[in-house]
Computed example of a mutant assay.
Amino acid sequence: MAQVQGRVATVRPVDEAEASGKVAEIFADIKRTKGLERVPNFWRVLATHPDQLEMVWSRLKALMHPEAVGRDSPLDARTREIIALAVSAANGCSYCINSHTAALRKLGVDDRTLGEILAIVSLFCTTNVLADAYQVQPDVLPPVE
């Protein structure tokens, strides 16, 4: 199905200049936390439902930017972004693939490293499908602490 010229989503995104109240506060927090000059389309679309915008942003901020909420994460920013890219690629979300690839580029990931990440994603998408299709029963289990 062809994309309609100039259309961003199935709803009209909230324009940054028109945002007010909770949405304007969250938009400012997104830009500050992520070091962005503008609010990306994803957040502008979620802003059409302010409660959802707040819930998703709060969760993402806590997990992807733990230092911004005073939380210590055992995962560094690069590892978090690699996980996000891997899941986005496996789910086929082009918006998120581009967003997390851009974040990884900002963190210094080069073409070779990106290729290695995507090769591993591809490998495990394949092995997961095969294990699931063959209904292989798990026989290598992690230890229980």
Score class of each variant (00 low, 15 high):
D76H: 09
L114S: 08
D110N: 14
L104W: 04
G115D: 08
P66V: 13
W43R: 00
N91W: 03
P74R: 14
V56R: 05
A86G: 05
Q52F: 05
V11F: 05
F42D: 07
A90E: 04
H49L: 11
L36N: 07
S122D: 10
T33K: 07
L114I: 10
T126W: 05
K22Q: 15
I120E: 08
S122Q: 07
I117R: 02
E18C: 07
L60A: 10
K22Y: 12
A77P: 07
C125G: 14
T113W: 02
D51T: 14
Q52C: 01
D76M: 05
V109Y: 06
S122M: 09
R78K: 14
A68Y: 06
E81D: 03
C93Q: 14
R44Y: 05
A77Y: 06
D110L: 08
R32T: 13
T33L: 06
N41W: 12
A90T: 00
D29Q: 09
D76A: 02
I83T: 06
L63M: 07
R105M: 11
I97P: 00
D76N: 06
T10I: 04
G108K: 11
A24W: 02
N91I: 05
R38I: 01
K34C: 12
L107W: 00
R105F: 11
R32K: 15
P74V: 15
N41T: 10
V69M: 04
A9Q: 08
D111G: 11
E25G: 06
A86P: 01
H65C: 07
G70Q: 07
V8R: 14
K22V: 14
A89W: 08
H100T: 10
R59Y: 13
V56H: 12
E16K: 03
V14H: 10
H100M: 03
A47Y: 00
H100I: 06
R71Q: 09
